[in-house]
Nucleic acid binder design. Structure first.
Lengths: 352, 352
DNA sequence: AGCGGATCCGTGAACGTTCACGGCCCATAC
DNA sequence: GTATGGGCCGTGAACGTTCACGGATCCGCT
């Protein structure tokens, strides 16, 4: 007993029935069966029914590999994404897979890590090898996008990257994050704040650049001057240290647009430790709406992106290209979710 | 300009070179080329080199679909996972893909949602259709696992599910979460706490059941009596409300093992709102080590699972089954990460 | 000189489909 | 009665590999 593997031997299962088996059983030629499973015309109703019944009986399923071989269309799309389980990319990935499947496409995913110059071309090759019909790249980082631009792939490539530009081989779909950043900042402006700082993400990320741009644009549009902006690395740690520094230098702004919820988290802890109250002393708005952000101390006002809509649009575009259709792209719009971490500026005065 | 699509027409790329093209160019038969790319013997060094050079020149790559068709081995594994981007599953998924690729396998993933009775068999069929060699199911929920057990698949299926049992067709790999829960609880015990409550997850999740079991076992092993246990749904919201209730009923325990970091988060907020201090008044240990948990208020003591190790073991086992090898399974062990949310029991006395 | 055995290489068939074509039958029209 | 054509169906080939053979050449041995 202890000697036994504990695992059953790989059961040597029966061969799957082929189109020929069905043809024989139904008394027709393989071509007729092919016609039936492809909904082709030129087959009489009674024959069709007979074939269909046999198919049902023997549990026939079309062999995708054979089909792929002869048509050189695999009905598989490739998804290339960053290996880090960051919030945005993962949400997009899940939505992408689901939508693709609803459209009859399977999806094979491959993850890449730094350095992208090596891993991205290799990953693209892998995808090419397995014969995908098209590729969607979730490229949050600029270096990653660059590696994709430089690559030479035979199939349509679409990139989900905020604010990047398209090239002839690579089509770039931009999630509307600048708008999200604007909304966050505008919320602060509407609340009456005039000194609005930004704890930014890394400028090596599209998201970082674009969110900063949105912050700045909103402020200028309101006729204000941009406040302090410090560029970080997305980590709570960096934000925490920055928060500490701000307090000790006496430069805590009226309001802060944090580039991500995790950034906000680090900030909040730093302020809490130094007796600076959020939102009474400083209003904070985050970005992402990560799980639990509604139970931060205080609950975080933040921006939520509509990943399913983004994925939907991306899939539509890619499948359109693959299948030669025209599609119109409707950008997804983020939504501001208002909670407790940002309050009107005048309340601040009265309370402190 | 405005009329134009903005998208380049799908470039009709050259056909990829086949084994025959290489053969012709190298002046050998296709079989010889096949031998070369398969590292088969019976080919002279000079011929091999010549072929290799041609392969290099024309950029030949083996067509996996053709290979799959004739060998009925696709070197693709299927990964079936829950659609919700919860922490554990996603970490496992990423690690799985990476490892599989390192072993020469591509991976196609499909996500499922409730009701599992419908979606799981359908997903399994999808995977079967694309011709995967084996399937790894990431099954956090019991209902999902049940659906897998009942399914009939032709290829080896391995399930990553804590504490489930194996059946002849489905091999279950159990991440050692009970141990993790024990470690968390033991930490509290070592700190001198005797009244240790558990805010549990849902009993519909394996993780929920197993973590609860670990909590209870650790307490009994220490000769103590289990404290309060309330079963929830993983959400910060539920934990928050529970925390509020505990305070108003005057039943706040000495220490709490929270089933997840997000649970801990909800608890902490509830306590903070009611003036119950963490860790001075109540020690809390979480589970997951989600991003940012080191910047909660206070930084959370929690348990981190080793997803890469878990994935590694799973892949080893599955590939072993596929390729007919024997492998020994080495369970991955979680690690306790000690931060500030749990402190010795006696400090509590002195401070309050 | 003839034989056995390596060593190297090639041919035919098969995997399960789709594509291009052609053939048969019956109905309709002249 | 013969031509025309549409509805229905079948045959051959191809996709790019691998598998199972078998054949040629050369060397060393008896």
């Amino acid at each position: 007993m202890a000697q036994e593997s504990g695992r059953p031997p790989a059961p040597t299962r029966r061969r799957k029935p082929s189109i020929n088996d069905v043809a024989r059983l139904a008394g027709v030629s393989y071509q007729t069966v092919s016609r039936v499973i492809n909904d082709a015309p030129d087959v009489s109703a009674v024959t069709r029914d007979r074939v269909l019944r046999v198919i049902q009986e023997v549990g026939y399923r079309r062999n995708r590999m054979a089909t792929a071989l002869v048509t050189s269309q695999s009905t598989v799309i490739g998804i290339l994404t960053d290996g880090s389980p960051r919030f945005g990319p993962v949400g997009t990935l899940m939505a992408l897979e689901s939508l693709a499947r609803q459209n009859g496409y399977a999806s094979t995913v491959v993850t890449v890590d730094e350095p992208y110059e090596d891993s991205v071309p290799k990953a693209l090759d892998t995808l090419d090898d397995v014969g995908v019909d098209g590729i969607i790249v979730i490229a949050p980082r600029i270096a990653m996008a660059a590696a994709v631009w430089n690559a030479d792939v035979r199939v349509p490539v679409e990139m989900i990257a905020a604010g990047a530009s398209s090239t002839p081989n690579v089509f770039t779909y931009s999630e509307n994050q600048e708008l999200g950043a604007r909304m966050a900042t505008q919320h602060l402006i509407d609340l009456g704040h005039t000194d609005i700082a930004h704890i930014a993400g890394s400028m090596e990320w599209f998201d970082g650049r674009v969110r900063k741009r949105g912050w700045e644009a909103a402020i200028r549009d309101a006729g204000l001057e941009p406040g302090l902006c410090v560029e970080g690395d997305w980590s709570p740690k960096f934000a925490y240290e920055t928060g500490l520094r701000l307090v000790s230098e006496g430069r805590v702004p009226q309001a802060i647009f944090a580039v991500s919820d995790h950034t906000a988290l680090g900030l909040i802890r730093a302020f809490a430790e130094r007796g600076v109250r959020v939102p009474e002393d400083v209003s904070i708005v985050g970005f992402d709406d990560v799980e639990g952000s509604d139970y931060f101390l205080p609950p975080l006002t933040t921006v939520r992106q509509d990943f399913p809509a983004l994925a939907q649009a991306s899939i539509d575009v890619l499948l359109g290209t693959i299948e030669g259709r025209e599609v119109d792209r409707t950008p997804s719009v983020p939504t501001l979710v208002v909670r407790a971490s940002a309050i009107p500026a005048r309340l601040r005065q009265t309370s402190s």
